[in-house]
C-alpha cells in the first residue's frame, strides 16, 4: 500500500506540478488537489503504464453519475491505491 501510494503521489506531483509533500493518502484528487478530468487522464495514463493495468475510469464515472458510488471511493488517494492494488492482484491471478 505504501509503495503504491508513493508511486501514485509521485505521478500526481510530476504530472500536475503539485508539491509532493501536500499529497497525502487522505487527499481527494479532485476536491483537495484540484485535479480536473483532463489532467486526470494524464495521471491515469501514467498509472496504467506504471502498474500494467487499465484503470476503469468510465465504469467509475458511470457509477458516480448514477449515484451508485461516491467520488471518495475512487478519488481519495488511499482508496485509489487500494483499487490499483486490486487491479494488479487480479491481473497477476488472471481474474
Amino acid at each position: 500500500m505504501s509503495s503504491t501510494f508513493d508511486q501514485v503521489a509521485s505521478i500526481i506531483a510530476e504530472t500536475c506540478d503539485i508539491p509532493r509533500d501536500t499529497i497525502t493518502p487522505d487527499s481527494h484528487a479532485i476536491d483537495d488537489l484540484g485535479i480536473d478530468s483532463l489532467d486526470f487522464l494524464d495521471i491515469a495514463f501514467a498509472i496504467d503504464k506504471a502498474f500494467g493495468i487499465k484503470l476503469p475510469l468510465e465504469k467509475w464515472t458511470q457509477e458516480v453519475n448514477d449515484g451508485k458510488a461516491t467520488t471518495e471511493q475512487y478519488f481519495v488517494l488511499k482508496n485509489l491505491c487500494a483499487r490499483i492494488d486490486e487491479l494488479v492482484a487480479a491481473k497477476s491471478t488472471g481474474t
Binding site: 491515469a44 495514463f45 496504467d48 503504464k49 487499465k54 484503470l55 476503469p56 475510469l57 468510465e58
Partner: peptide, 9 residues
C-alpha cells in the same frame, strides 16, 4: 500509444 478507459493517446 495507449488505449485507456474512455480515452486514448
Amino acid at each position: 500509444a495507449h488505449e485507456g478507459s474512455g480515452y486514448a493517446m
